[in-house]
């Protein structure tokens, strides 16, 4: 750009967006009076700036906010599902371990009563209260 742009045009461009000092203002005013090409360039720059200003859009169209909220809600739903799925996977594992323990207990004893499954076979209330931790509760 530097090679092609004249110093007057450079000053003109600067004046469009930044303050110019007294000397620059005078040079620009003289240039505008004496140089019709610079006046034309000035008109063109203002026209381009006007056109760019009109590019401004004021919305994305109807129901944009609703669409944003829909995505947010949908995403929240997906997160809930992921949390549920994650815990469900572990629920199945825990349940599997419990069943395996109960089955092991069942096979280790030669009995299929509930007491044998829970490892309480042959235990009486006295046996339970004889455990140190329950001593104070002994009737």
């Amino acid at each position: 750009m530097k090679s092609a742009v004249s110093s007057q045009e450079e000053l003109l461009l600067k004046s469009l967006d930044a303050p110019v000092n007294a000397d620059e203002r005078e040079r620009l005013a003289t240039g505008m009076q004496e140089n019709p090409a610079l006046r034309k360039q000035s008109d063109q720059y203002y026209k381009i700036r006007e056109m760019l200003k009109r590019k401004n859009a004021d919305s994305f169209g109807p129901f944009f906010a609703e669409r944003v909220l829909h995505v947010i809600k949908q995403r929240a739903g997906n997160i809930d599902y992921l949390v549920f799925f994650f815990f469900r996977k572990y629920q199945v594992v825990i349940l599997g371990v419990l069943v395996a323990l109960l089955l092991a207990n069942l096979f280790l004893s030669d009995n299929i009563t509930l007491k044998s499954i829970f490892g309480l076979e042959g235990e009486t209330p006295e046996d339970i209260f004889s455990i140190d931790a329950y001593k104070d509760l002994t009737p």
Binding site: E9, E10, L13, D17, A18, Y45, I48
Partner: peptide, 15 residues
């Protein structure tokens, strides 16, 4: 300011 000048110069030239 440099980018603005460059953009406006290029746009004016092209148009």
């Amino acid at each position: 300011l440099t980018r603005l000048a460059k953009a406006q110069y290029n746009l004016r030239n092209a148009l």
